[in-house]
Amino acid sequence: MQVEWWVSVIQAFVVINLVMATFAYLTLAERKVMARMQLRYGPNRAGPYGLLQPIADLLKLLHKESFVPTAAVDRLYLLGPFLAAFTALVTFSVIPYGPGWEVGGVYVPGVVADLDIALVLVFAIGSLGAYGFILGGWASDSKYALLGSMRTCAQLVSYEISLALSVIGVVLMAGTLSLTEIVAAQAGTWWFAAPQLVGLVVFLIAGTAETSRAPFDLPEAEQELVAGYHTEYGGMRFGLYSMSEYIHLISLSALCVTLFLGGWHGPGFDGPSWTGPIWFVAKLAVLLYLFIWMRTTLPRLRYDQLMRFGWKVLLPVAVLNAAVTGILVVWL
C-alpha cells in the first residue's frame, strides 16, 4: 500500500524517541536487575524505586566538561560517537512491530520502511558501526584508545560473519530478505526458533560479542585497557558512545525477535491488531533480561579466547547450520 511520506516521518520520530526512552530505562533496569541478582538494591534514591535515575545520569553527563584533547584530530574525534549512535538507530527503521493500521483514513504501516533488502541493510549499516569505534580510537591520538579500538574492531568484524551466517537458515526457510515477510512467514505456525535453534544460539552468542556485552566485553574492561576506545571521551560524548552501545543491544534483540521469535505475532494466535506491538515489546523485554542475566553471571573472556572461539567454534557451527538448512529446505 502506498504510504504518505509525512506518516513515515512522524513514525520515524516516534520510533526514535521510544527507542531513546527504552535505552534510558534499560540502563536503570540493568542496574536494578544486576543488583538484585547480587543480593543488593539497585539505585533507589532518585525518585520512587530509582525511576528518576536515568534523568539524573543524563543531567550529570550534560553538565560535565566537553573537552577535546590537544593532540586529537578535531573533526574525526567529534564524528566518532555520532557515527556509532547513527548506525545503531538506523536499524529500527526496518524492524516491523505490528500489522498495518487504518487510523482516521490514513494507512499507518507496522514498520517505518518496508524494504525488499531489509536484512542486508541491517547488516550493512551494522558493519558501518565499526567506524564509530575506529574513528574514536584513532582520532583520540592516545595509545590506550588506539589499542582498545583495534581490539574492539577485530572482535566486531570476526563475530559479524557468524552473525550474518546464522540468519541464513531463517532466510532460506522464509525465502525472502524482507523482514516483514519473514515475520509473516512465522504467523500461526512454529516460530523460526524451533527449527533454527542452532541458528538462534549462534545469533545470540555472536550478538553478545557484536555489542561488546559480557562475557565478551573486553573493550570496556577497565582493568585491561583503561577504557578502550572511549578513554579520551568525557561528558555527553561519552554518553553518546554509551547510548550507541545500548541501542545496538536493543536493536539486536529486536532483530532476534523479528527473525527467530515471531516478531509481533502472539504464540500461535493473533489478537486484535493493537496487541502486535505489545507482544513485540514483551519478547524484547525477555531477551534484554537474558542479556542482563548473562552479564551478571558469566566471567569475562580473555581476548585470545574470544577470537579463538569466534573463528574456530562459532563460524564452523554457523556454516554447518546454513549448509544443513539449505539441504533440508531443498529436499523437504
Partner: peptide, 25 residues
C-alpha cells in the same frame, strides 16, 4: 540496483575499508 547498493555498503565500505584502516593504523 538496491541489492548491489546494500552489498556495496556491506562488502566494500563495511569490510574492505575496515581492513584498510586496520593496516593503516
Amino acid at each position: 540496483a538496491e541489492f548491489l547498493a546494500a552489498a556495496q555498503v556491506l562488502v566494500y565500505a563495511g569490510s574492505v575499508m575496515v581492513m584498510f584502516l586496520f593496516v593503516l593504523a
